[in-house]
């Protein structure tokens, strides 16, 4: 067994273990953490396929940002575990059918001639100077420029939609206006006026003479 094979089996085993734990473990926070492990192992598998750019971006985007938000939300939920288990028997038939269907489909695809391992040999390795990132960038911004732009617009629309859902004016809440806070000068807040001393003989009478 070469080191490459060893790392593939290691990451694949970790991936399957983590994915199983995500759906079987009771504690939702732990489930999210196992999902993090699953993403991380998937990134490891991608590295063995020489897709190092995709692997690192996967860690950066999914592990570094998306799952943090997931964890953030799940942590704040007070989930009642006994109530969570209540509907289990009810959903079991549908879930079971879906699971069986998935397994059958996977088996059909993987055992067919089109997708079998024999018809998809491992692509020849690239030389050490080959930069996956540069190649991906070139193809993304030339050949696939339009799909890329369309995806970007869709994401922008999604961002605007999400913000507009949460945006509601509350007249009773008083917001700070940082711009006006920053631009304040001392002359706006205090006024120094020159005036005569109230008691011209204060010095001679002393403090206690009031």
């Amino acid at each position: 067994m070469t080191f490459l094979q060893f790392s593939f089996y290691f990451f694949a085993a970790a991936l399957i273990f983590a994915a199983t734990m995500v759906v079987t473990i009771r504690n939702p926070v732990k489930a999210v953490l196992f999902l993090v492990l699953a993403f991380f192992s998937a990134a490891g598998v991608w590295i063995t396929l020489e897709a190092e750019f995709l692997a690192v971006v996967m860690v950066l985007v999914y592990v570094g940002a998306v799952m943090v938000l997931f964890l953030f939300v799940v942590m704040m939920l007070d989930i009642n575990l006994t109530r969570l288990k209540e509907g289990f028997g009810e959903y079991l038939p549908i879930g079971g059918i879906v699971a069986v269907l998935l397994v059958v489909e996977m088996a059909i695809i993987l055992s067919s001639k089109v997708f079998g391992p024999a018809s998809m040999p491992r692509p020849p390795g690239q030389p050490e100077t080959y930069s996956n990132t540069a190649e991906l960038g070139k193809i993304l911004y030339t050949e696939y420029a339009y799909p890329f732009e369309i995806a970007a617009i869709i994401l922008l629309v999604a961002i605007i939609a999400a913000i507009s859902l949460t945006l509601r004016r509350r007249p009773e809440t008083r917001y700070q206006k940082p711009a006006s806070q920053v631009s304040v000068k001392s002359s706006d807040r205090i006024k120094i006026i020159s005036m005569d001393a109230e008691n011209p003989h204060a010095d001679s009478q002393g403090e206690s003479g009031k």
Partner: peptide, 18 residues
């Protein structure tokens, strides 16, 4: 000497929050 060193650093520093 990784070709994607900068991305690797970004990915790892983003994991520290866990």
């Amino acid at each position: 000497n990784l070709d994607i060193g900068l991305l690797y650093i970004l990915a790892l520093t983003s994991m520290g929050v866990y």
